[in-house]
Design a protein around this nucleic acid. Structure first.
Length: 128
RNA sequence: UGAGCAGGUCACCUUAUCGCUCCUUUCGAGGGGAGGAAAGUCCGGACACCAUAGUGCAGCAUAGCGGGUAACGCCCGUCCGUCGCAAGACGCGGACAAGUGCAACAGAAAGCAAGUACAGUUAGGCUGUAGUGAAAUCAGGUAAACUCUAUGCGGUGCAACGCCAUGUAAACCAGUGUUUGAGGGCUGCACGCCCGAGUUGGAGGGUAGGCGGAUUGAAUUUUUGGGCAACCAAAAGUCUAGAUAAAUGAUGAGGCUCGACAGAAUCCGGCUUAUGACCUGCUUUUUUU
RNA sequence: GGCCACGUAGCUCAGCUGAAUAGAGCACUGGAUUUCGGCUCCAGCGGUCGGGGGUUUGAAUCCCUCCGUGGUCA
């Protein structure tokens, strides 16, 4: 699997985002929070992901952009953890809840931790 | 060197790998990729639709004089005023000799008037001074008070606007109307112009995807000429982000002064605000030599 | 991205045709009433008028500029 995020892996549809926030489940690993939902792949070929930084915590566009870029980078380099271990399509939203500026090292470790939690939880749900 | 004034420049750089976005492509790859403020949305335009934007009133804006500009509330020059020892900075800087209003406290009196004390003079009266106040018969003060004068301004904004796709309901109830013209568009009103068989309200249903607009422009660099200057003209050269849940990041290596404020969304010209470092010129006096 | 409003006591609002002490209700404190508490009555406390600059003799009010909050437009 390539370490890339092409356009069709980004969550864009307003409807899908709304559905995700209403019906999705969540895991948090401070300062990150993952909202996810399994989707029935009707025409959709890929899992989709969105990165969110609330304006409430970071007023300036520069800092918000910076965090989103770090999140995107973390997802790009670590998504193999999920897709090598789990079957099915999902929509994700990764939210930065913290109020302090992170660096890449922190983001990387947090994303890996978050993905491990997610894998554990979903495999557990499957067994049940 | 201290204190201060004015103006200008740059905005970490180089490289490799992995990613993002746009363009080109011989499908191997190659090339471009945030700012001086991209910000605030405070002005002025371009552009689009509504009459090729029309008339009157209302409304709003500007305000010494001259020039620049597509235009401006911007810029340049200059006069005057205020501040500063100075270099310089700042100025909503027309009219109260058209009318109306307002003026706390103080004061006799802040305009349909009234008139204190003292001095001059024979007296009436007149003149001067004192006293209150920001302002006192002075053509009084006040227009960032109404107003008047001059000049300018039609409205709405790219979520404008054009097109394609998808979907439902030309359904139901009530009012009103069809050439004797309802209603709508063009502004707040009136006129005028245009469209015109529907339209307004109630309750309810559906869509909310994509393409264009969109980046070559009052653009910019150099040289020459004109002008005190802002700026203008000519010649030669350059192509410099274009996304749409929305692109610039990560890692390694090297270097330095160890990097502030901060992220394009239709596009330009300004203003204002945030902000690091460096350079140039000038003023001034003291400290030092 | 565009357009439009609003910031006054701890809270909800007046005052914004410039001048007099910035008022009202709730809340808070003290007192009266009551066996005690509530209700009621009396008194008090509490304000950079969002910040800064300007006009004016004088600004919450007029003008400019920043900051914050909210609404609206396919």
């Amino acid at each position: 699997m390539a370490f890339s995020i092409p356009k069709n892996e980004k969550l864009k549809s307003k409807k899908q985002i709304e559905r995700l926030f209403v019906d999705g489940k969540s895991i948090s690993n401070y300062p990150l929070k993952l909202i996810y939902q399994k989707v029935d792949s009707l025409g959709e070929n890929d899992s989709k992901v969105a990165f969110i930084v609330p304006k409430k915590n970071f007023g300036g566009a520069v800092h918000r952009n910076r965090i989103k870029r770090l999140l995107r980078e973390g997802y790009r380099l670590n998504k193999h953890l999920i897709f090598n271990n789990i079957e099915g399509k999902f929509t994700f939203a990764i939210i930065y809840i913290g109020k302090d500026m992170p660096n890449y090292q922190m983001i990387k470790e947090n994303i890996q931790g978050l993905f491990n939690k997610f894998i554990k939880k979903t495999t557990h749900e499957k067994m049940e």
